[in-house]
Amino acid sequence: MDDLKVVIIGAGMGGLATGIALRQVGYHVEIYDRVSELRPAGAGISLWSNGVKVLNRMGLGKAIAQIGGQMDRMQYHSHTGELLTDVSLDPLVQKVGQRPYPVARTDLQTMLLHEFGAENVQLNCKCVEIEQTETGVTARFENGRTATGDLLIGADGTHSIVRDRVLGHPTDRHYVGYVNWNGLVPISPDLAPANSWAIYVGEHKRASLMPVGDGRFYFFFDVPLPKGSVSTPDHYREELMSFFKGWAAPVQTLIERLDPLRTNRVEIHDIEPLERFVKGRVALLGDAAHSTAPDLGQGGCQAIEDAEVLTRYLHSTTLGVEDALKRYESERLGRTADIVLRARKRSHMTHGKDPEKTQQWYEQLKHEDGSDIINAISNTILAGPLH
């Protein structure tokens, strides 16, 4: 199909990646976002090899390598500092054909915006209604503007408005059971080796340091808490010191060193796998389609995979837009549902939903030679569209 005009709602990672991919095959793309200023949610993201491969195909391999962190190993420690396992990621890279690149979200969004053209993103455009005809689809915005195209892509995140229009009903977000604090700190040897992902586990909690570009660690803390707990940045350090009292020295140093005003605190939610992603000429993508807990590190990668699959079907099939979108939906429903449910299951295991299972996991880590970890990650990567 040639000369398509595509309207994308949402200028996050998924929307921008899709816009780039669609323009590269010759389509006219317009992106709209409700915000007045683009600010990526969260400080960092683990961009695993399946996501990187799609960016490579888009010609962004060199750019992502420049902003990504050098992550050569994974280390698990007990909360008191005992090294449980230390795994080289080289076998993973050899198995899947591409190294992962942990990256700061701001750097990733800047890279994608530069490629698409920030001037081509229309801000202050909150989509409030969608109308379809046999030949096109129109988005109406709160400010009175409209945008009409051959198809519309809802990449408007976990609180998606487009999703409600596709499904015909609102969806409930499911609280996974824990609160996550995350941010960036300078790489320092008293925190972790510069090329290692260091994870401290115990008491159903986690503290993690992952290298991203420009000499920084992306850090996060996880604590199981009741839904609706609140806090403010002026209490974050005190809060974390209480939750992680008695933990190893690097964890204490991290708490002292983080900047509370640049630290995010988020209740982690997902959404039950949807029954469909498509209605006529409208398709969902990214968190709008499959909002997942971050416990497999695959949320961003799945949005990027969506971009590749959607573009491929639009560009390669000749039975019309609606047929191409249905093929996209058919390929992505099972893949993303599997990610959502496995991430939820892993979250429960990690955060003490069944304390006995969590304790068994701690014990397994003491005897882990790395093969189970590498196999689990590589199987997830290789189930994607680019093997």
Score class of each variant (00 low, 15 high):
residue 387 H to W: 01
residue 265 R to C: 15
residue 229 S to Q: 15
residue 263 T to G: 12
residue 133 T to G: 08
residue 143 N to F: 03
residue 276 R to K: 11
residue 169 H to E: 14
residue 57 R to P: 02
residue 313 Y to K: 09
residue 150 D to Q: 12
residue 9 I to Q: 09
residue 365 L to F: 03
residue 233 P to R: 05
residue 127 C to K: 08
residue 287 D to P: 03
residue 359 Q to N: 10
residue 219 F to W: 12
residue 317 T to R: 08
residue 194 A to Y: 05
residue 296 L to Y: 08
residue 252 Q to D: 09
residue 340 V to T: 13
residue 319 L to G: 11
residue 128 V to R: 11
residue 344 R to L: 13
residue 17 A to K: 04
residue 21 A to N: 05
residue 41 A to M: 11
residue 31 I to R: 06
residue 23 R to I: 00
residue 313 Y to L: 03
residue 60 L to M: 15
residue 335 R to Q: 08
residue 194 A to W: 02
residue 384 G to H: 09
residue 377 I to Q: 09
residue 252 Q to L: 03
residue 80 T to H: 12
residue 94 Q to D: 15
residue 266 V to W: 13
residue 375 N to Y: 04
residue 333 L to A: 00
residue 314 L to A: 05
residue 215 G to P: 07
residue 366 K to G: 03
residue 286 G to L: 01
residue 260 P to S: 02
residue 189 P to N: 03
residue 128 V to I: 15
residue 253 T to K: 12
residue 233 P to V: 02
residue 313 Y to M: 04
residue 132 Q to E: 14
residue 174 H to L: 10
residue 14 G to V: 01
residue 303 A to D: 09
residue 95 K to H: 14
residue 111 M to V: 05
residue 328 Y to V: 00
residue 363 E to C: 00
residue 323 D to Y: 08
residue 115 E to H: 11
residue 83 L to K: 15
residue 104 A to D: 11
residue 279 K to Q: 12
residue 336 T to G: 01
residue 272 E to H: 14
residue 39 R to H: 13
residue 237 R to M: 12
residue 355 P to M: 06
residue 133 T to Q: 05
residue 21 A to D: 05
residue 211 P to V: 02
residue 7 V to T: 12
residue 9 I to Y: 07
residue 338 D to N: 12
residue 181 W to L: 02
residue 179 V to G: 11
residue 114 H to R: 14
residue 304 I to K: 13
residue 269 H to Q: 08
residue 362 Y to P: 05
residue 112 L to I: 07
residue 276 R to T: 00
residue 206 R to N: 06
residue 296 L to A: 04
residue 249 A to W: 01
residue 32 Y to L: 05
residue 164 D to Q: 14
residue 372 D to V: 00
residue 328 Y to H: 00
residue 40 P to K: 03
residue 87 V to P: 10
residue 351 H to P: 10
residue 230 V to K: 15
residue 221 F to N: 07
residue 361 W to C: 00
residue 133 T to Y: 05
residue 364 Q to W: 07
residue 20 I to E: 12
residue 235 H to C: 05
residue 127 C to R: 09
residue 322 E to A: 00
residue 105 R to F: 09
residue 24 Q to L: 04
residue 220 F to P: 01
residue 260 P to N: 03
residue 244 F to W: 04
residue 114 H to W: 06
residue 364 Q to A: 07
residue 131 E to W: 00
residue 56 N to Y: 11
residue 138 T to M: 04
residue 345 K to S: 12
residue 209 L to Y: 11
residue 333 L to W: 02
residue 230 V to D: 14
residue 365 L to Y: 07
residue 121 V to A: 07
residue 322 E to F: 00
residue 38 L to C: 08
residue 21 A to E: 06
residue 91 P to Q: 09
residue 176 V to E: 15
residue 319 L to D: 15
residue 260 P to K: 03
residue 28 H to M: 01
residue 280 G to T: 01
residue 85 T to I: 08
residue 266 V to C: 03
residue 176 V to C: 06
